[in-house]
Amino acid sequence: MLALESVTKRFGGLTAVGGVSLDVDEGDLVGIIGPNGAGKTTLFNVIAGYYRPESGRVVFEGRDLTGHPPHEICRLGLTRTFQIVKPFGNLSVRDNVMIGALTRVRSVAAARTDADRVVERCGLGDYAGVVAKSLPIGLRKRLELARALATRPRLLLLDEVMAGLNPAELAAMVELIRRVHAGGVTLVVIEHIMAAIMRLTRRIVVLHHGEKIAEGVPARIARDPKVVDAYLGEEFTLE
């Protein structure tokens, strides 16, 4: 479904992502881990069209996305959430989600019905009328996800939607992600919390200094000496 062909992105002299290749099949739930500065978010920015790679290609459902702007990529069915959440702060939760829905339906009324459904599904029903900037962080992460879902993606990139959540919120988020996946959305998830990602995904990709150093099932990744090395001195949360 998604294929990265040795994608490289540099900033000045710094190589943020160096020759990363990756295949994601329809129905996959892939995790991407790596220490801070490993290039995870940069990789998302390249896939979603925010950065143009210096070399390599991003192919989605047989179509070359390289160089396409983010909004076109979203309309093709691939979108992302942001690690630092970007709610439309002065708008209500419903309006936030509705703006996503309007990408698929032209009528405002239909988009509102759509949005209400998504809001409900993401457990934000009680907050539909609340202004987004007054939500606590846990709910903002949900809103981020809800808004992206409203654009009806077939492939969704989640950038640390579990970071900063308390245990109860975390469990609910894992549950929500599972449901989204079960609903037919292919997922690529960046996460720092190893325990969560081990439980959630079937395949993990490890980035370090912008390069892919390992890929495989969670159990093998946890034992891979290269991965353990890369994480030395970093928070290796396996609680």
Partner: peptide, 26 residues
């Protein structure tokens, strides 16, 4: 305030990057 364009514009005004991720040609 009430049209599709208006909502999308509000999104762009609030956060252009996020609006783009939602398929809006900001």
């Amino acid at each position: 305030e009430v049209s599709r364009m208006g909502y999308q514009l509000a999104g762009v005004r609030e956060d252009e990057d996020a609006a783009q991720a939602l398929g809006i040609a900001g």
